[in-house]
Amino acid sequence: MNSLVLSTITRILAPLLLVFSVFILLRGHNDPGGGFIGGLIAAIAFILISKAEGRRQAMVALRVRPLSIAGTGLLMAIVAGFWGLIAKGAFLKGIWPLIVYNADGSKGGLPIGSILLFDLGVFLVVIGGVCGIFFNLEKAVGEDTD
């Protein structure tokens, strides 16, 4: 496709979508959101680029091949599962190494741990998976001739 409107909008929208996807990912722990939706939003950014500038350009923007992203994500999710198994004896159990308990019993510190790692894994699997499927479909259809 060769549309000035789409490519101009994409230049603004794609970075916004990527930032928004990270926001949704991080928000997911206590509110609606999370790795899956965040990953889909990030994938939309790359699909938009591929629609506006062509599949090659989108692959360049991704830098890493989609399936490698998905593989890394899967690895992170499995590691998050084993983290819980090793630390607390239950696979996928949530581990919060940076949470500290104050003297008055309230919680402090950073709520970052195995859950976030798992969600980040899901995020990457979805980006990689969706982009991989989309690029392959587009290649099969043969629309993309640049």
Partner: peptide, 15 residues
């Protein structure tokens, strides 16, 4: 379950 999944992931990364 985890061993084959891990193996699959490694195979994917080392493809």
């Amino acid at each position: 379950i985890a061993i084959p999944l891990l193996t699959a992931t490694l195979c994917l990364l080392l493809r």
